[in-house]
Design a protein around this nucleic acid. Structure first.
Lengths: 341, 341
DNA sequence: GGTTAGCACTCTCAACTTAAGAGTGCTAAA
DNA sequence: TTTAGCACTCTTAAGTTGAGAGTGCTAACC
């Protein structure tokens, strides 16, 4: 049985109604609120068909209908229209983007905040992968007699720093060490720079060996905690507003999910349908704990690597709007990161 | 009526029992589980007295007793013993502290994480105040032709950086500008450095004026968002485990409280009883939204200013342990920050 | 006089009952 | 093919009830 026009209309109506209210949708409600020109009984028959085809489900024998994952999928892919941001809203977000360009990291953090507020779901950014980024500059700056500040700038604008111990040395000498480090380690991807540092260490048995060891350690720690550190989240409290979280056990569960990095893992291992922004719905996700949720996310490029920005929320999500907003952020991020690069 | 020995024992017993179970405590339970050598009826009489004195309350006429804020207070001040961390635990935490010394900011973040895990409450650090810290060093580093990295190191080891636009200039010239900035702005507290920058600007009408403006802007933004940025929190999910958060509305409320900075505000305006660590209980707190909670926090000094580290949880808190753990963190933080300074 | 046993009384909580309401599926007629 | 009608199912909220826990009071006890 194919999805004829009327079935499509009814499916859309059920989903939109369900997204709005969170309650199972009955034939009456559809007939009343959507002018389809047929009686509840007819709609009932159609809904029966839709259920048989797997697009709708029931919570119990005599309840209204609830969309299934498959239902959401066909809705997202074929039925729903494009939502557009209001002029006012897109202007506000636009000016936000203009004002927050300080460095990549804080830009991404601010974007998360804005995205979560714009959608009322949890927003996240999965930062660009460290492995493929390269080191742009290394500097050593005097702080006190025996401490120096090591600053590492990557090609994508991330700046990391830490204090290291140094033997007492003159300004010029420190300058020289900086130069030396830069010469050997700059413009090399983070995944390979560690080996380079090792090599450098072998040749250099002088008083700078200790410094090189500390630089290498720091480079290590940069890539090491990348997994969790690269993920920024914001607006978790938004999720609690959803009626699906009336149950405190589920809240617990959700918090666990957020903490242990399932979000990031899921995005990395779930093959999204090839839309942009990508939408993965419920069971399509690969990590068990997020199979009750949906993702909408886009990709942004910065330098030679890429990151993701998107939202995470209940399957019962306003997809047209979610797609529109995420798409907006994706576009703007790409523009800005391209320019400032 | 004074708190004689037996009343004190019974009050302690009620509080400890209530902290354990979260349920109102009856006279039977006390008689059974604590060997006080008297019958439930006697305990009942004593509990009646304790209620009249304001140390205990009831949830309804024929329920067991529940500690009042005043009850907790006298318990914390006079009745509870000192808890000690197990050797194993203090060793683990000790070694954690040794391993995480990278820079002040990440040390504090890690401390929050560890503290929340050790106590199972929400942990927080209120970072040292920016206003009173001074600038230790300013550096300008070339990144690309028309961009430079501005790095500002404060006396307490915080490092902030941002990218700024610069006219094309030689290495030496940039070095010179760095020097110039440092000469005029270093060793001055952040609250006064903005005026200095203004002065500098008046004299300097050359091509560096634009740079100085950007530096001033950045200094501004550093102090500006200090309020919220200085507060690190961790372990919010822990709170959800508490039975008092079975009710989703309260969870909502709590999340709101955490988001809008009530924690920090409360600590700043609430006069704590002069113990160390400080403990403020329920109604003693000044911000309305946290009057159902307790704080246990200590002070650490770093450079010329100070910060707070502590936990936030329900009034029904294991105070002996909370005090022991927070005290441990406080001590260690002070030691480390004193040494690395 | 402090302590205790006994007992009536209060209140909560969980289990059960009930009635209203929403929704379905089926049948038969239009 | 559509629709009206109707019996049936299931949920939900609002009582109802009984068991259990706890109290306060009184009177007896040491």
């Amino acid at each position: 049985m194919a999805l004829d026009d009327r079935k499509a209309q009814i499916l859309s109506a059920v989903i939109e109604e369900y997204v709005k209210t969170g309650l199972p949708v009955g034939s009456r409600a559809i007939a009343r609120r959507y002018q389809l020109g047929v009686s509840p009984a007819t709609i009932r028959n159609e809904m029966g068909d839709l259920e048989e085809m797997g697009y709708l489900g029931k919570t119990h024998t005599s309840s209204g209908r609830v969309p299934s994952d498959k239902g959401y999928r066909v809705y997202v892919d074929e039925l729903m229209g494009d939502a557009r941001l209001s002029q006012r809203e897109s202007q506000m977000l636009e000016s936000f983007f203009r004002s927050k360009i300080k460095d990549v990291e804080s830009l991404l953090k601010e974007a998360v905040k804005a995205l979560s507020e714009a959608t009322n779901y949890l927003a996240f950014v999965l930062g660009p992968e460290y492995e493929t980024t390269t080191i742009e500059a290394i500097h050593l700056l005097p702080v006190t007699l025996d401490k120096a500040l090591l600053v590492i700038v990557s090609d994508i604008g991330f700046v990391e720093n830490c204090l290291i111990d140094v033997p007492a040395m003159s300004r010029e000498e420190m300058e020289y060490v900086s130069q030396m480090l830069c010469e050997h380690l700059c413009h090399i991807s983070l995944s390979r720079v560690k080996d380079k540092a090792q090599n450098l260490l072998k040749r250099e048995t002088s008083r700078y060996a200790d410094i090189i060891v500390q630089v290498a350690d720091f480079l290590d720690s940069m890539t090491e905690d990348s997994e969790s550190e690269r993920l920024y989240m914001g607006g978790a409290a938004n999720l609690l507003k959803q009626p699906e979280f009336k149950d405190p056990d589920r809240v617990q569960e959700l918090m666990q999910t957020l903490k242990n990095g399932s979000l990031a893992k899921n995005i990395m291992i779930t093959e999204p349908p090839s839309t942009d922004p990508a939408v993965t719905i419920g069971d399509e996700n690969r990590i068990e704990t997020v199979k009750e949720f949906s993702f909408v996310y886009g990709t942004f490029r910065v330098g030679s690597s890429e990151g993701k920005i998107g939202i995470f929320g209940p399957k019962r999500m306003n997809y047209p709007r979610a797609v529109a907003v995420v798409s907006f952020f994706e576009r703007n991020l790409n523009e800005i990161l391209d320019v400032t690069d």
